[in-house]
Simulated assay, not measured.
Amino acid sequence: MPALAFALALLLADTPAAADAAQPAPAPAADSVDAPWPAGAPRGDYELVAWCYGALRGYVDLHDEVMPEVTRIESEFRKPGTKLADDLKVYADQQKQAKADLKRFQVALTAAEKASARPINTVGAEAVKKGHAIWTVTPSTPKARVAQEWMSWTLPSRCSATADSLHKRAVLMGPAFRGNGDETPAEAPAEAPATAAAAAPDAPSADAKPN
């Protein structure tokens, strides 16, 4: 290799750009809009947030019904040096966070519905029901299985980030809609709920488990 070409090769090898090019792309943050799409969730940010609302609503609704079995499981399978009260407090804290997230999702859904030039809440209501349906099970499902599924379930990481993004975009787009003469959102059919979040089904039975 000529001396000049060899020197250039050494120079390029020492530059940050060359070093960075060899590095793999960083993985998306756990709580981001680039996180994996939840299995079974509909496509579209508005539909996804509605689905997340339904799934989380079902999780919250099951709390009182599964906690006796959760307490039994936690009592029987204790790790040395741990306290039952500490573990039960974790579930209580998770409920507080879940209820806060429900409000967060509802705010985003309502903002999107108000900003939309056409009624979309019926689409959202269907997505809410689909999300809630992950907790639908047969009456023969053992209570222990339901409790174990409930204990291990976590809100998909894409939900919160997408809700925040949807809310921001809806707020920014709202003035544009009104500025074009659309002073109020188009009215939804009379039978439609005020918002998609209002369509969450009643709590499932205690014999329910997620799909």
Rank of each mutant, 00 (worst) to 15 (best):
A3V: 15
L4W: 11
A7M: 08
L8V: 12
L8A: 10
L12T: 09
A17P: 00
A17E: 14
A18Y: 11
A19H: 14
D20I: 11
Q23D: 00
A27E: 11
A27P: 02
A29S: 11
A29H: 11
S32L: 03
A35E: 01
A39E: 15
A39I: 12
A39F: 10
G40V: 07
G40D: 10
G40A: 10
G40C: 09
G40L: 07
G44R: 03
G44Y: 04
D45W: 02
Y46D: 02
Y46E: 07
L48R: 04
V49Q: 03
V49D: 02
W51V: 09
R57F: 06
V60L: 01
D61E: 06
D61Q: 12
E65F: 12
V66Y: 11
P68F: 00
P68I: 01
P68T: 04
E69F: 05
V70F: 05
T71I: 08
R72S: 09
I73P: 04
F77W: 07
F77Q: 14
F77C: 05
K79T: 14
G81C: 07
A85V: 07
V90W: 06
V90Q: 08
Y91A: 02
D93S: 09
Q94E: 15
K96I: 06
A98Q: 03
A98I: 03
F105R: 08
A108Q: 10
E113L: 06
K114G: 00
S116A: 15
A117I: 11
A117K: 10
N121F: 00
G124Q: 07
A125P: 04
K130I: 00
G131R: 02
A133W: 02
A133D: 12
W135T: 03
T136V: 08
P139F: 07
S140D: 15
S140F: 12
K143V: 09
V146M: 10
A147L: 05
Q148A: 10
W150Q: 03
W150L: 05
W150A: 04
T154I: 02
T154Y: 01
T154P: 00
P156W: 04
S157M: 04
S160V: 15
S165R: 13
R169Q: 15
R169E: 15
A170R: 03
A170G: 09
V171A: 11
V171S: 05
V171F: 02
G174T: 14
P175W: 10
P175Y: 10
A176Y: 08
G181F: 03
T184N: 10
A186G: 14
E191N: 14
A192W: 04
P193M: 06
T195F: 09
A196E: 08
A197D: 06
A198V: 03
A199N: 04
A199V: 05
A200W: 00
A200Q: 06
D202A: 15
D207G: 13
A208Y: 03
K209I: 01
